[in-house]
């Protein structure tokens, strides 16, 4: 079984976000990790490989530091990686990512494509679905359970207030939700093998895209940080009186009730 996993390198979940002088996110000193939802996808891919054989190819986009994320995936057990890296891909939007990933994946054999349901940095959750559309294959989002047989995948996905069981013909794109599995830790043997695995770097031209006419369709005019948390307030007085005053403040000042 040829399994493809789309992986995005994101900020560590504990990273402190700061903006630089020109209002852009300053990621220079930030620790980068594999998007945690993509880790669920890698784990599920490795489980499929253990069951059906075949191999797992990681596909990613990014710059100089992106290979780190792929190597972590290699250490977990993925077999090879494809990284699309190009100066024209400095700051791609969701449309661009979906186009590029679809073109890169269309060059390799695939029976199933897995990825995280959302990247924890921009949180748009669009890329996988648009990529499936570009590839002309069905997609199932937010899966928490997966079984594959006879060219079909049966996935349980989260919906509002419950779950839904979906059957889909392969190839298809499935996106992983928390709860699908517990990603394995790379073993020392896995870490040792990671450096010898093939990491193919492709430019836009290599995936058949003309870089000159390629630009994002969406622009982000401004980024802003959330308002800093204000200190708490103590309501003094006897408990019954204080509670009354607290209720008044919550209603009139905070407008929370």
């Amino acid at each position: 079984m040829n399994i493809v996993v789309c992986v995005k390198q994101t900020f560590d979940t504990e990273a402190k976000i700061v903006l630089d002088g020109s209002g852009n996110i300053d990621g220079s000193a930030v620790k980068l990790v594999i998007n945690p939802y993509d880790e669920y996808a890698i784990e599920e891919a490795l489980k499929l490989k253990e069951k059906f054989g075949g191999d797992v190819t990681l596909v990613s986009m990014g710059g100089e530091r992106a290979p780190e994320a792929l190597k972590t995936g290699f250490a977990m057990g993925a077999d090879r990686g494809v990284l699309v890296t190009d100066p024209a891909l400095e700051d791609p939007d969701e449309w661009a990512c979906a186009e590029v990933l679809a073109k890169a994946i269309s060059q390799i054999p695939y029976d199933i494509i897995l990825t995280g349901r959302v990247a924890i940095d921009d949180g748009s959750g669009q890329v996988a679905v648009r990529m499936a559309d570009a590839l002309g294959v069905p997609s199932v989002s937010c899966i928490v359970e997966l079984s594959v047989e006879d060219g079909k995948a049966v996935a349980r996905r989260e919906i509002d207030g419950g779950t839904e069981l979906v059957e889909v013909c392969l190839p298809a794109v499935l996106t992983a939700q928390k709860g699908l599995n517990i990603p394995r830790l790379p073993s020392m043997a896995g870490i040792m093998k990671a450096k010898n695995k093939e990491l193919k770097k492709l430019s836009l031209a290599d995936v058949g895209i003309d870089a000159s006419g390629f630009s994002r369709k969406m622009s982000v005019p401004k980024l802003s940080l959330p308002n800093p948390r204000k200190g708490g307030k103590t309501v003094p007085g006897e408990p019954a009186e204080a509670a009354k005053e607290l209720a008044r403040l919550l209603r009139e000042e905070a407008k929370a009730i």
């Binding site: 250490a75 020392m188 870490i191 450096k195």
Partner: peptide, 18 residues
């Protein structure tokens, strides 16, 4: 090194999880 960083991260995760 890159490998040593991976070892460090893995051991940290191991200690936190297990």
């Amino acid at each position: 090194t890159e490998e040593q960083t991976m070892v460090q991260e893995m051991a940290k995760s191991f200690a936190e999880q297990e």
